[in-house]
């Protein structure tokens, strides 16, 4: 018998495996930014000075690059997620199943709409 085991590093062998790993890493960056938000809330609760120190640190060029990288990975996560959720439809809402490309397009439109709503309701408009 020759048992077969895929060695670690398999995700570099095939471009699709690599894209899969990028997608997964994108999700982890969402958790990282959630921790940043938590930290922001903590500094906010500590008062004006602590919050200003936090903002100053987040405004340094190094942190801007980190934030931009996080943003890029979260975008990868968001876009792949919009593509994936159209593929799993256990409960059929319409008579004909929706092709995933259509669901993907619909999700993108909804995403833009929700982003604008969030900008107005949560962050106080443009």
């Amino acid at each position: 018998m020759l048992p077969w085991k895929r060695p670690a590093g398999w995700w570099l062998r095939n471009p699709r495996y690599f894209l899969f790993q990028m997608r997964e890493v994108g999700g982890v960056f969402a958790a990282l930014y959630a921790l940043v938000l938590l930290w922001q809330l903590r500094e906010f609760s500590q008062g004006e000075l602590a919050y200003a120190t936090f903002l100053a640190f987040m405004g340094t060029p190094g942190m801007f690059v980190v934030n931009a990288v996080m943003f890029a990975f979260v975008l990868v996560h968001a876009i792949t997620w919009f593509a994936l959720i159209g593929k799993a439809q256990p409960v059929q809402l319409t008579k004909e199943p929706i092709p995933w490309q259509k669901a993907f397009a619909g999700n993108l439109v909804a995403w833009v709409g929700i982003s604008v709503v969030v900008l107005y309701l949560i962050f106080g408009g443009l």
Partner: peptide, 9 residues
């Protein structure tokens, strides 16, 4: 996260 996080960041 897909719908809300990009605009937040």
């Amino acid at each position: 996260t897909a719908f809300l996080l990009p605009v937040t960041i």
